[in-house]
Amino acid sequence: MSSTDLPPPSPRMCDMIAAAAHFTRGMVRPRRPDQRLLASIDDAGLPDGEQTVRVRALPQVSRQVPAMGVVEGAAPYRRLPSAMTSFVVEHPEATFLVDPGYCRDARQRTIAELPPLTRLLVTPPAATMSTLDALAGRPPSRTPDFALPTHAHWDHVCGLLDFPGMPVHLRKSERDWLLGPDRPPVGGVRPTVSDGRPSEIYELDGPPVATFVASHDLFGDRSVLVVDLAGHTPGSVGILARTTNGWVLLAGDAAWHYEQIERLRQKPAFPGEFVDEDREEAFATLHRLHLARHLMRVIPTHDSAASGHICI
């Protein structure tokens, strides 16, 4: 068979080849921070108020992952701690879960739906705890009233499968992306939020906060604000909470590791070009986080060193 008889590569294969080339280039020459963008970002300040909340990371198994797969341009021999962390936020009016990311029997219920290469890269250790089991091990003072995922990827919502009646709060743009006519996110995401589950759809209808362009006051007392971190998905958000020890931002996957925020380094092209819906917007959001880190404690969901055993 001659080379002319071979079938042309599929679009996905072409995308993977391009991403691999970009990954190699990024190892040598990572994307530089945009100094004009940094200079253009205003600090709108943090709201006044007296009400505080408690933020707690649920226990989770951590693993070491190659740094060059998380931070563009990282040295290939380095490794970084990673985990599928869920959080509990306790407010006087309600207790809620942020990023209930892992369900019981996840390998069969969600991970089996992922493409083979993705499964190889993202399958966590066998000892990884479901959000339900982690919550049972360290229960809050009251049963969680609802879940508020930072975005609707499988590893941030599949734990909802173990809480069939729990309401979920979703940003409208995220809900529209998730349930729209296009190919849905993989990993059983749609059933976690749509199969008869009560939902509360919200908009970012509030003013800029700190370096973020829009917000939503969850309880009306300026203690928990949902802020815009779009780019990773169309409706990605962060949960900004006032605690007795200062402001904390649960940043989801706007960054996979705090080192990205500190050094202003985007995700590597592989797998970043397959997981970020809008790479330009994701990079702009990273600039906002870079400036915001002086105003608050920023915690990416998968950075187990940043989340640690946070209880504040």
Rank of each mutant, 00 (worst) to 15 (best):
S2T: 13
P8S: 11
P8V: 09
P8Y: 04
C14Q: 15
D15V: 03
M16C: 10
M16P: 00
M27N: 12
M27I: 08
V28L: 15
V28Q: 09
R29K: 14
A39R: 13
D42A: 15
L46P: 04
P47K: 06
Q60R: 03
Q64R: 15
A83L: 09
T85G: 01
G101E: 01
C103E: 09
R119C: 13
A126F: 05
A127T: 09
T131I: 07
D133F: 00
A136Q: 12
R142H: 10
P144L: 01
P144Y: 04
D145L: 02
D155V: 00
D155W: 07
V157C: 02
L160T: 01
L160S: 06
L170E: 00
L170F: 09
R183G: 02
T192E: 05
D195H: 09
P198L: 11
L204W: 08
P207R: 12
V209A: 04
A210M: 13
F212I: 12
D217C: 13
S223F: 01
V224E: 05
V226Y: 05
V226W: 04
L229W: 08
G231T: 08
S236R: 03
L240R: 07
R242S: 10
G246E: 09
L249F: 07
L249Y: 10
D253E: 15
D253L: 08
E259K: 04
Q260H: 10
E262G: 02
E273G: 01
E273P: 06
F274G: 01
A282W: 04
F283D: 08
H287L: 10
A292G: 11
R297V: 06
V298H: 01
P300V: 03
S307R: 00
